[in-house]
């Protein structure tokens, strides 16, 4: 399937994003209920988010426009992001992502 290919190329989940970085949500692999809940809080494919804080074992805090959202680790793992062109603080530490070419979302949001 389409999303599986994307996963193997980009492969970056929100839970791996360093705090302070800005990323774009590519896809959310969650059930209907969670998807609807996240969408209602402004988290859906195509949206730009910034990771503000990440605790070692627990949840992380995101900024989506003017909303601060707390996400559990489990949820964050299911959110696939694209960190390429948007990273406004491409820190040296994020070498995990440096080799992958920026992916082009296929026919996503308008």
């Amino acid at each position: 399937m389409n999303s599986d290919v994307e996963q193997s190329v980009a492969g970056l989940s929100l839970s791996e994003v360093e705090p302070g970085r800005r990323v774009r949500v590519e896809a959310i692999r969650a059930g209907r209920a969670l998807n609807a809940r996240l969408a209602a809080m402004g988290l859906l494919a195509g949206v730009e988010v910034k990771v503000i804080r990440r605790s070692l074992t627990g949840p992380l805090v995101l900024a989506i426009r003017d909303t601060r959202l707390m996400l559990g680790r489990g949820v964050a793992r299911r959110i696939q992001v694209d960190a390429g062109p948007l990273a406004d603080s491409a820190s040296a530490g994020s070498g995990r992502n440096s080799g992958t070419p920026p992916t082009v979302p296929s026919g996503k949001t308008p």
Partner: peptide
Amino acid sequence: GRTTPLVMELPP
């Protein structure tokens, strides 16, 4: 059941 996914707004 799975632990309910934690999704919560941090209000100002």
